[in-house]
């Protein structure tokens, strides 16, 4: 139930972020400070999210070596190839291979 409520609130908030200027503020500009902050929202939130996932309660604090090496591989591949599918496939292969070896 709380999951459904969370989805509905997130949905309303998301719609508002898409509609705000189109429906209500067509003649306004985004304040400079806000647009600068938004540039940094993506990298900051998503990086924080990766760490939050790796240090999830019940996983026992530090992530294992297989996870860390696989994410390092993912970082390099994403940077060099900009290909989601390739990055996902090779990082998972590294994760499985190291998991089997270690």
């Amino acid at each position: 139930m709380s999951g459904l409520i969370a989805i509905v609130i997130a949905g309303l908030g998301t719609y508002t972020s898409r509609a705000l200027f189109i429906l209500a503020l067509a003649n306004r500009r985004i304040p400079h400070g806000v647009s600068v902050a938004m540039e940094y929202v993506g990298p900051s939130v998503l990086a924080a999210l990766v760490v939050a996932l790796l240090t999830a309660p019940g996983q026992g604090g530090l992530p294992g070596a297989a996870e860390l090496v696989a994410l390092l591989v993912a970082t390099l591949l994403a940077w060099k190839t900009r290909n989601h599918l390739l990055t996902l496939a090779l990082a998972m292969l590294v994760f499985w291979a190291l998991g089997a070896l270690l």
């Binding site: 990766v50 996932l53 993912a74 970082t75 994403a78 990055t87 990082a91």
Partner: peptide, 10 residues
């Protein structure tokens, strides 16, 4: 986490 890492980097 792999997908999110890719999103951060890109």
């Amino acid at each position: 986490p792999v997908m999110f890492t890719a999103l951060v980097v890109m």
